[in-house]
C-alpha cells in the first residue's frame, strides 16, 4: 500500500514510462529570465488565500511535504523523531479544533540518506508516509555511475519507495543531453517500483534555459518527479526555477498525457512561501497537481512555521515554536 495517495483524490496516476530521446522537443527552448521573474512577482500578488482557506491550504502543504533531514550528524534517534513528526505533524488538539481529524494529515514522506533507511522504513510503516532516500552520490553526484546504480538498488531493497537522484551537472552544463538521458534512464530502471525524483541542482545549472532543457531530458528518461535542488547549493528552490520547470511539466503533459510531479527543495521556510508555491502550481498546472502524488516541498523548517500559523488561526494569538512538538 506504500504507493497509495495519502489524501485527496485516490485515483492512481499512471507512471511516466519515459519516451525516446527527442532533442527537437527541447533544443529550441529559450527562456526569458526577466519575463519569468515578472510573472513570478505577479503570480503571488494576483492570488491571496485568507482565513479558512489559508488553513486548508496550509494543511495541504503539510501533506505535500517531504520532511527532510540530510545531515552528517543524523542518527537513528534523530531520524526516529523526524518520522514520528511526519506521522503526526500537527498537535492533535489543533487538528481536532480544526475539525480535520478524518483527513489523516501526515507529511507526504520523510527524506533521508540511505544509511537511515533502516531506521526510517520501520518507523513509518503502515502510516502512509513514504520514505525517500537521496541517492547517486548525493549531493554532488561525483561518484562512478555503477556506484550510483548500486546505491539506488540498495535503497530500494532497504524499503525506500522514492529515490531522489542527482543528475550529473557536468552533462547538462556541457550539453551532453543524450548522455544525461541515458544516465537518468538507467536510474529509472534501477528504481523499479520506487518513484524516481530527479534533482537538477538548478542553482548550479547557470541559466533558466539549461534548467528547462534538463527538465525535459529527465522527463523523457522516465522521471516521476523533477526537483530543483539538493538543498546544498548556494541557491536552492526559487519561484523562477519553479515556473520554468512546471511549464516544462505542463508541456510534457500536453504532449504525452503523463503527469510529472514537481518538488521545489531548499529555502522554503515560511507558510507564506508555501502558499505562493501552491498558487503557482494551481495557476500553471491546475488543481490536479495539488496533491502529494504530484507535488512535494523538500523542507525541514517549513512545518514549524505552518504549525504556528494554524494555532494563530485558532487562538488569534501569535504562537511560539516551543508550543509545537519537535521533529
Amino acid at each position: 500500500m506504500a504507493n497509495m495517495p495519502s489524501s485527496g483524490d485516490a485515483q492512481a496516476i499512471p507512471r511516466n514510462p519515459g519516451m525516446p530521446f527527442r532533442p527537437e522537443l527541447f533544443q529550441h527552448i529559450k527562456i526569458n529570465k526577466s519575463a519569468v521573474e515578472r510573472r513570478c512577482d505577479s503570480i503571488v500578488k494576483r492570488r491571496s488565500v485568507k482565513k479558512d482557506h489559508q488553513v486548508a491550504w496550509l494543511l495541504k502543504a503539510i501533506t505535500c511535504m517531504d520532511l527532510t533531514t540530510l545531515s552528517g550528524d543524523d542518527t537513528p534517534g534523530t531520524v526516529t523523531r523526524l518520522c514520528r513528526k511526519a506521522m503526526q505533524p500537527v498537535r492533535a488538539d489543533i487538528i481536532a479544533r480544526l475539525g480535520v481529524q478524518d483527513l489523516g494529515i501526515t507529511t507526504g514522506a520523510v527524506c533521508v540518506y540511505h544509511n537511515m533507511l533502516a531506521t526510517a522504513v520501520p518507523a513509518v510503516a503502515g502510516s502512509g508516509v513514504h520514505v525517500a532516500a537521496v541517492s547517486t552520490g548525493f549531493p554532488a553526484g561525483q561518484i562512478p555511475l555503477p556506484f550510483k546504480i548500486n546505491e539506488i538498488k540498495a535503497s530500494v531493497a532497504a524499503g525506500a519507495t522514492e529515490i531522489d537522484i542527482v543528475i550529473s551537472r557536468e552533462l547538462a552544463l556541457t550539453g551532453q543531453w543524450e548522455a544525461l538521458y541515458e544516465e537518468v534512464k538507467a536510474y529509472r530502471e534501477a528504481c523499479g517500483e520506487a518513484h524516481l525524483k530527479a534533482i537538477l541542482a538548478t542553482g548550479e545549472l547557470g541559466t533558466l534555459t539549461t534548467v528547462a532543457k534538463a527538465s525535459w531530458v529527465c522527463m523523457m528518461a522516465g522521471a516521476d518527479f523533477i526537483k530543483t535542488s539538493t538543498g546544498k547549493e548556494p541557491v536552492n528552490a526559487t519561484l523562477p526555477f519553479s515556473l520554468v520547470m512546471v511549464r516544462a511539466i505542463r508541456e510534457y503533459h500536453e504532449l504525452t498525457g503523463f503527469m510529472i510531479g514537481y518538488k521545489p527543495a531548499g529555502g522554503i521556510k515560511t507558510a507564506k512561501q508555501s502558499l505562493d508555491y501552491l498558487a503557482m502550481i494551481k495557476e500553471e498546472l491546475g488543481n490536479a497537481w495539488l496533491r502529494p502524488e504530484l507535488f512535494r516541498f523538500g523542507a525541514s523548517s517549513l512545518l514549524g512555521d505552518i504549525e504556528r500559523q494554524l494555532e494563530h488561526y485558532l487562538t488569534g494569538s501569535y504562537s511560539a515554536q516551543f508550543r509545537h512538538p519537535m521533529g
Partner: peptide, 8 residues
C-alpha cells in the same frame, strides 16, 4: 476547511 482542502 475539509471541503476547501479537497477543492483548493
Amino acid at each position: 476547511i475539509k471541503e476547501i482542502f479537497n477543492t483548493m
